[in-house]
């Protein structure tokens, strides 16, 4: 399996924030979720990959350097950015006429099919769309030139569960249509990723915390619920972080089976991605 994106030592320094030597790969056929709280560095990572901001480090997309082959690479990428689009003062027909000039492979028929399927009007200005409609239009625009890679920055933020589900279905179908495609989704709504992602990349305060298969993360990690006495028996190297609740301690472990065997504690819950993220961010050690 080849990598669609290879990021090596990506570094970006701002006055008040630093993205610290992030490295990861995104294999073809996969949906990868980029998670982290607001301001963790998700958008900086995405913008650096797209060369929208200048960062140090090495980024290869489709095996090519993202700066040297920028224009060529971007022909095969579809992008959705939460708070940025062509213009609020255009309608879907205008967007079609503009996009034709950007992408040689722009598929007008497919674009209007998506609009119809998403129930989007073609003559209404984008500014008059609801948040869900705007997002669907951005997605239709991003996938109508048959891209090999989708990069999505917060595509489901501010949307109701029904629309979110519809959007996740679109991504699922997009990957199913061609197994060589890949999707990188940055989001802080982690429940969405539990259903569709193959890997999770977690960034916290500009640091890469982990990159793991979603299934392993959900199956192997565990939240141990124990008394204060039990908690003090646990060695620090056997847990990632803990939280002191009103009547008990909650401990996040990355290997619940090993933990069960070592400490004979049986109350271990399956965590959600959000639980794991919260333990890393808010938990103590």
């Amino acid at each position: 399996m080849e990598n669609v994106i290879e990021v090596k030592n990506l570094h970006k320094q701002y006055n008040d924030f630093e993205l610290k030597d992030i490295s990861f790969t995104i294999p073809e056929g996969s949906i990868v979720g980029l998670i982290g709280e607001n301001g963790a560095g998700k958008t900086t990572t995405i913008k650096s990959i797209l060369n929208i901001i200048h960062a140090e480090g090495e980024v290869n997309i489709f095996g090519k350097d993202h700066k040297t082959y920028e224009k060529e690479i971007k022909k095969d990428i579809g992008v959705v950015i939460d708070d940025s689009f062509l213009s609020e003062y255009l309608n879907a027909k205008n967007i079609n006429r503009i996009m034709k000039d950007f992408y040689e492979d722009w598929n007008e028929e497919k674009y209007f099919e998506y609009l119809k399927a998403f129930g989007l009007p073609t003559n209404k200005m984008v500014k008059d769309f609801s948040s869900g409609m705007k997002m669907k239009l951005k997605i239709a625009t991003a996938i109508s030139h048959n891209p090999k890679l989708l990069i999505l920055d917060e595509p489901t933020s501010g949307l109701d569960p029904v629309v979110r589900n519809e959007i996740l279905d679109i991504f699922r179908k997009f990957i199913e249509e061609d197994e060589k495609r890949a999707i990188l989704i940055s989001t802080h709504i982690t429940t969405d990723l539990e259903h569709i992602s193959d890997y999770i990349i977690f960034i916290n305060k500009g640091n890469l915390v982990f990159k793991m298969p979603t299934q392993d993360l959900l199956e192997e990690y565990g939240i141990v619920k124990c008394s204060e006495n039990d908690f003090h028996r646990i060695q620090k190297e056997d847990y990632i972080a803990y939280k002191k609740e009103k009547y008990q301690y909650e401990v996040l472990t990355e290997n619940k089976e090993k933990f069960k065997n070592k400490y004979s504690i049986t109350t271990i819950d399956k965590p959600t991605i959000e639980d794991i993220m919260l333990f890393y961010i808010k938990g103590g050690k």
Partner: peptide, 18 residues
């Protein structure tokens, strides 16, 4: 001003242009 309102510069930079 239209570009500013829609923050379109970021999006445009993600398209195959320079």
């Amino acid at each position: 001003s239209y570009d500013d309102i829609s923050k379109s510069n970021t999006y445009i930079l993600s398209l195959p242009t320079n």
